[in-house]
């Protein structure tokens, strides 16, 4: 079964968002199907992170339809959205520095989930995550604040997975970390995908995005300018030049 015939998990349409009086997003529409990895691309300030935050309910002012698993989640508080099975990994890591690795994972823990058809969703335990991120397994009692940037990046993903999300929103995973860590992140995303996880990520690094994703949306000044398969985007140098300034 290919991803394109899988059911739609997240369906966003007519999404508008503001920071203060500044209008940032204009009628953004996108969808994610089960099992897909989707990249939301565009330059800095194009509205990628804003889109993810708006979906998550983290903005004080946004409008539009955000349909997740057939339910409208627009206007819900972030914790309610998270409890419905949307996991969010922020761009600036935001791990809890005073808490140990184990405690950090504990903050993300939610009960196991089922899909609508009754089948069990991926169910993560600390041990399973330590297997996926061997580095973390070796430092379970270390405080978050004493970890390197790359390790924190792994921890923030693991913490979100503890909520057994049905869809993960991953904000700029490659920003500000060494290339070798970016590569690990790519491997990690591919490993999750192989287990059937669905991911919507915002990304500026075109090389990274095309390594990991099936489809892409390109944002410019808060509007979707392009959508299509990653393969098509790879060959569309016009779009790349115009909006990704590659």
């Amino acid at each position: 079964m290919t991803a394109s015939v899988n059911p739609i998990l997240l369906d966003v349409s007519g999404l508008n968002a503001w920071y203060g009086a500044a209008h940032i997003l204009f009628d953004v529409a996108l969808n994610v199907r089960r099992g897909e990895v989707i990249s939301l691309m565009g330059r800095n300030g194009a509205g990628k992170s804003t889109t993810l935050k708006a979906i998550m309910g983290l903005l004080s002012r946004s409008e539009g339809q955000i349909n997740f698993l057939g339910q409208d989640i627009a206007g819900k508080a972030p914790f309610q959205v998270a409890r419905m099975g949307l996991g969010f990994v922020p761009e600036d890591r935001r791990i809890f520095p005073d808490l140990t690795v184990t405690e950090n994972l504990e903050t993300g823990r939610q009960a196991p989930r089922q899909w609508a058809d009754g089948s069990a969703a991926l169910n993560w335990t600390p041990d399973a995550l330590y297997e996926l991120f061997p580095n973390l397994g070796r430092m379970q009692d270390r405080r978050g604040g004493q970890m390197s940037g790359g390790e924190q990046q792994m921890l923030t993903v693991a913490r979100t997975l503890m909520g057994n999300p049905l869809l993960v929103l991953l904000d700029e995973p490659s920003e500000g970390v060494a290339p070798v860590i970016v590569e690990q992140m790519a491997h990690m995303i591919l490993a999750l995908k192989a287990r059937g996880a669905s991911i919507l990520l915002s990304e500026q690094n075109f090389h990274f995005a095309r390594l990991v994703s099936d489809r892409a949306y390109v944002l410019e000044k808060g509007q979707i300018m392009y959508e299509g398969s990653m393969q098509d985007l790879t060959h569309n140098s016009e779009i790349q030049r115009a909006y990704l300034s590659v």
């Binding site: 983290l58 508080a77 972030p78 998270a82 405690e103 903050t107 913490r159 979100t160 909520g163």
Partner: peptide
């Protein structure tokens, strides 16, 4: 955790 970053905690459910 909330002492450090309550918004993040909300996003974790």
């Amino acid at each position: 955790a909330a002492t450090h970053d309550r918004e993040m905690l909300g996003a974790l459910g």
